[in-house]
Simulated scan of single mutants.
Amino acid sequence: MAPRMKEDYRSLTGPQKAAILMLSLGEEQSSRIFAMMDDEEIKEISQTMANLGTVNAGVVERLFVEFADQISSTGSLVGSYESTERLLMKTLSKDRVDMIMEEIRGPAGRTMWDKLGNVNETVLANYLKNEYPQTVAVVLAKIKADHAARVLSLLPENFAMEVIMRMLRMEAVQKEVLDGVEKTLRTEFMSNLARTARRDAHELMADIFNNLDRNAENRFMSALEERNRESAERIKQLMFTFEDLVRIDMAGIQTLLRSVEKDKLGMALKGASDTIKELFFKNMSERAGKMMREDMDAMGPVRLRDVDQAQSAIVVLAKELAASGQIVISEGREEDELVY
């Protein structure tokens, strides 16, 4: 029995319209369009084409008129990451395309490290605890410090210490090592990642330790002091905590006050030393200071975890302001101490 003829234009679905258009264009033109589609698009349109049956000439004509009207009325084209990547691949090498696409995709990209950054820390820790400590060290060195800290705190303690020791001894990551990690993780790999600049291992660990909660930080630091006191002391010196905000001058604290969320500051100060509290209050107006104290009193007892999170957020903000030159953080040496 011959397939039913398509006569009612209004009943056509989007894929059916696309299938009719592709059949009407001829092999050469349609093959060029197929080359610009992904596998799922090709599969859907091909299946629709196969089941299309006979199409009335009037339906085809109306489809072309509608298509031409839509293109001319909008005067625009719709692009996507995928179509851009396919176009670049026709003229550039894969390495260059990977590099360009990684830049324009930003945080939501599709590189191995982007994907790992979006994996729940519990899931990632459960996977990594069965890998070699060296493999885990490479992974934690490549993902963001706050994410690495959460993963590290979920690993078995002895295993986590093995990872920390390898991270401290790790030299610049070679392409061969990254290739091995790619194979282990069974995910895509971007060759330009092998060319990333080396970062000091102790600075990296200090950044990760800054993002640990207090219990995990104390636990790992105590264990590290037993195994390598020199590294532990160096990491302590490099760590920047909420209490280290005393290293910012008055103008810097006022800049920080203008940038920080007031409820977050109140939560952070609930668990701060008297020195830090006084530092902030004396840089506020009398009215603002009174309101802040009232807000803090109204909070009542608060969870240590919430205080840690608020303090960590303010430390990150302070670092960002310092990096952009808006505030200055002294090195903490005796000759750099501030005198009021």
Rank of each mutant, 00 (worst) to 15 (best):
Val151Gln: 07
Val151Ser: 06
Leu152Ser: 05
Leu152Asp: 03
Leu152Trp: 03
Leu152Gly: 05
Ser153Trp: 08
Ser153Gln: 10
Leu154Ala: 07
Leu154Pro: 02
Leu155Val: 08
Pro156Gln: 07
Pro156Phe: 10
Glu157Asn: 09
Glu157Ser: 11
Asn158Met: 13
Phe159Asn: 11
Phe159Arg: 07
Phe159Asp: 11
Phe159Val: 07
Ala160Asn: 07
Ala160Arg: 04
Met161Thr: 03
Glu162Asn: 14
Glu162Tyr: 00
Val163Asp: 02
Val163Pro: 01
Ile164Tyr: 01
Ile164Cys: 02
Ile164Thr: 04
Met165Gly: 00
Met165Cys: 01
Met165Trp: 00
Met165Pro: 01
Met165His: 06
Met165Ser: 08
Arg166Asp: 00
Arg166Gln: 01
Met167Leu: 06
Met167Phe: 03
Met167Pro: 01
Leu168His: 03
Arg169Val: 01
Arg169Ser: 10
Arg169Glu: 11
Arg169Gly: 04
Met170Ser: 09
Met170Ile: 03
Met170Ala: 11
Glu171Trp: 03
Glu171Phe: 03
Glu171Ser: 14
Ala172Phe: 07
Ala172Lys: 15
Ala172Tyr: 10
Val173Ser: 09
Val173Asp: 09
Lys175Ile: 13
Lys175Gln: 14
Glu176Thr: 14
Val177Lys: 07
Val177Tyr: 02
Val177Ala: 12
Leu178Trp: 10
Leu178Met: 15
Leu178Thr: 10
Leu178Glu: 14
Leu178Tyr: 09
Leu178Pro: 11
Asp179Cys: 00
Gly180Glu: 09
Gly180Lys: 08
Gly180Ser: 07
Gly180Asp: 10
Gly180Thr: 03
Val181Cys: 05
Val181Gly: 05
Lys183Tyr: 03
Lys183Asn: 10
Lys183Glu: 13
Lys183Ala: 13
Lys183Leu: 14
Thr184Asn: 13
Thr184Gly: 09
Thr184Met: 13
Thr184Glu: 15
Thr184Cys: 08
Thr184Ile: 15
Leu185Glu: 12
Thr187Gln: 09
Thr187Leu: 09
Thr187Glu: 09
Glu188Ser: 13
Phe189Gln: 05
Phe189Leu: 12
Met190Arg: 12
Met190Thr: 09
Met190Val: 09
Ser191Trp: 05
Asn192Met: 13
Asn192Lys: 14
Asn192Cys: 06
Leu193His: 06
Leu193Trp: 02
Leu193Ile: 12
Ala194Ser: 13
Ala194Met: 08
Arg195Trp: 12
Thr196Asn: 12
Thr196Arg: 15
Thr196His: 12
Arg198Asn: 09
Arg199Phe: 02
Arg199Gln: 14
Arg199Pro: 01
Asp200Ile: 08
Asp200Gly: 12
Asp200Thr: 07
Ala201Gln: 11
His202Arg: 12
His202Ala: 10
His202Phe: 05
Glu203Asn: 10
Glu203Tyr: 01
Leu204Lys: 02
Leu204Ser: 02
Met205Phe: 00
Ala206Met: 01
Ala206Trp: 00
Asp207Tyr: 00
Asp207Val: 00
Asp207Arg: 02
Asp207Thr: 00
Ile208Asp: 03
Ile208Met: 03
Ile208Thr: 03
Ile208Ser: 04
Phe209Asn: 06
Phe209Glu: 07
Phe209Gly: 04
Phe209Asp: 04
Phe209Met: 05
Asn210Tyr: 04
Asn210Leu: 01
Asn211His: 14
Asn211Ile: 00
Asn211Thr: 01
Leu212Ala: 03
Leu212Ser: 06
Leu212Phe: 08
